[in-house]
Structures are given as C-alpha cells and as structure tokens.
C-alpha cells in the first residue's frame, strides 16, 4: 500500500554501514588511547571513591546501594570479581588494562575506569 516495494538491501544501507563504520573508527580513536594505563579510578554514585595504582596487587571492596562489589587489581589489569547485582554484567566484562576503558556496574552504581599517568583530568568532572 503506502510503501514502495520493500527490498532486503538498497543503496542507502551500504552508505549507512559505511558512515557508521567510519563513526565507530573515529570514536574508537578518540576514546581509547590504547596504551596501558597507570591508575585505577573508582566512582561510586557519581562521586570519586578513590584512585589506586594499577601496578600493585589489591582487592578493594566498594559498598554500593546493593552491597559489596569487589574490585581487583593485579598484573596491570582491573576486574570485578564479585558483585551483588542480579545480572553480573560487570563480572562478565572481565579484565581491562588500557587507558580509557571502563567497567560499569549499573545496579550498584559503580564505575571503574583506567587513567593514564599524564591524563588530563577534564573528563573526571562529575555532572
């Protein structure tokens, strides 16, 4: 009726994929410096909950609204080993080690990010 013939593929699709692909590449380039980071910053409820060195071996217990989330640092990487949230997405995110990468536990309102040594701190401002 109202629509022109519906096809699986039209020229706009190719242009769309191309534009999105370029966008992905651009944002990736912009966001990740792809260098190993040096510091771990933990943010709880929009607020800074401490910065730790990425060099050591530590386990940090962070108390969010749901309970205790355990953030581990070791071997130059950060990961969340246990969390009280139902879906455990943050645990499944695994280890991160590069500047700009983040671990997020949305239900427990915890965000863990890796910073470089000479990182400009503008991005750290809370809204």
């Amino acid at each position: 009726m109202g629509y022109p013939e519906i096809k699986a593929f039209r020229i706009g699709d190719a242009i769309l994929v191309l534009v999105l692909g370029l966008g992905t590449a651009f944002f990736t380039f912009l966001n990740f410096h792809s260098e190993p980071g040096s510091e771990v910053r933990i943010i709880l409820r929009d607020q800074d909950a401490g910065t730790y060195s990425l060099a050591g071996d530590t386990a940090i217990a962070v108390n969010g609204p749901l309970g205790k989330t355990v953030v581990n640092i070791g071997g130059g990487a950060v990961w969340i080993s246990s969390a009280p949230c139902p879906q455990q997405i943050c645990v499944h995110q695994g280890k991160i080690r590069l500047t700009g990468q983040i671990l997020v536990c949305v239900p427990n309102r915890i965000c863990v990010e890796i910073q470089g040594s000479g990182d400009r701190d503008i991005d750290g401002t809370t809204m």
Partner: peptide
C-alpha cells in the same frame, strides 16, 4: 544511573 561522561566511551562499541 551513571552520570559519567566515560560511559559514553562505550559508544563505538554500541555503533
């Protein structure tokens, strides 16, 4: 929830 601009660094992955 997470009013962190860093959350937007997930954008390329989402694209």
């Amino acid at each position: 929830w997470v009013r962190q601009s860093r959350l937007l660094s997930l954008l390329p992955l989402f694209l």
